[in-house]
């Protein structure tokens, strides 16, 4: 309390950076909204929080059966379950944020039409909720590494970087989709498809070399336009070693940067009319 401040609003003026600074002032709201989503997620389910563990494990079993046993994909010195788990961890976070953010503004319309707060808080809170599952998956990876007696790779120094790449790709895409969906509601139906296809178009359950070596160059470039293609490769390489990201991966990192900046820009542009459109 006691903060003296002046609010100034002028038609036609919507500074980009001032809006970002405001997020810091509203951090309590960000935490509370994330907490709400987290609490509500497993409310009234029998297994409760155990779902956060069961989902990735079930997925892993399917991966092992399909990619390792049936298709016989080789992952070198890294045991396949560990290989797939690392890829899946990064990809699942992206899929979660994308899936949750798409509808986020629309489902928060009750709040948006009744009270002011930086709207960016909404997709941001989804990205925070996703971190819970992400952390659990990371712990699973650690447990599996212990089980297999598999050491961290020498590339661990790069892990923070690829972690950041994963988070930023997810957040950028989430922000962009949440803003786009309010104007183009069709995306509500497109996003689940993107998540489904993305799983196959991202080297989560298989090594990227398989794609790089079999596709023509333009196909590979297209493949790496997926920001998660490079992110997943780097994420796994920094943790477990194996093949470093392909030279094409820079396309992914560029896409990531573009998606993040464009997403923020687009969101800020839409922000002031959100209450009118939703």
């Amino acid at each position: 309390m006691g903060i003296k401040r002046t609010i100034k609003v002028e038609a036609g003026r919507w500074p980009l950076l001032a809006g970002l600074r405001e997020i810091a002032e509203y951090r309590d709201l960000l935490w509370v909204l994330a907490y709400r989503d987290y609490r509500v997620r497993y409310a009234q389910t029998y297994l409760g929080f155990a779902w956060a563990l069961l989902q990735p494990l079930a997925m892993l079993v399917v991966f092992i059966l399909v990619f390792s046993k049936a298709a016989g994909i080789a992952t070198g010195s890294i045991p396949y379950p560990l290989y797939a788990m690392a890829g899946m961890t990064a990809w699942s976070y992206f899929a979660f944020v994308l899936g949750q953010s798409g509808n986020s503004i629309i489902s928060a319309q009750g709040m948006i039409q009744k009270i002011y707060f930086p709207r960016l808080i909404i997709p941001l809170s989804k990205a925070i909720v996703g971190l819970v599952d992400f952390a659990i998956s990371l712990l699973l990876i650690l447990a599996m590494m212990l089980w297999y007696g598999f050491p961290f790779s020498a590339n661990l120094w790069a892990f923070p970087f690829f972690l950041l790449v994963t988070l930023i790709s997810s957040l950028g895409m989430g922000i962009w989709m949440s803003a786009l969906t309010i104007r183009y509601r069709d995306l509500q139906h497109v996003i689940p498809f993107m998540v489904q296809f993305g799983l196959f178009l991202t080297p989560a359950a298989y090594p990227a070399e398989m794609v790089v070596s079999r596709l023509p160059e333009w196909g590979v470039v297209l493949y790496y336009l997926n920001p998660m293609a490079g992110a997943v490769e780097g994420f796994r390489w920094s943790l477990l070693g194996g093949a470093p990201p392909a030279s094409y991966a820079w396309i992914s990192y560029l896409t990531m940067g573009f998606v993040f900046v464009a997403g923020l820009y687009w969101f800020r542009r839409m922000e002031r009319t959100m209450a009118d459109i939703v």
Binding site: M1, I7, A11, I115, Y116
Partner: peptide
Amino acid sequence: RITYPTRGHFSIHGRVASLLEVGT
């Protein structure tokens, strides 16, 4: 600040709370 003006401007001095509904 729920919606944004088409023209004109305003300023408010001090901490603002708006109650357009209870239980938002």
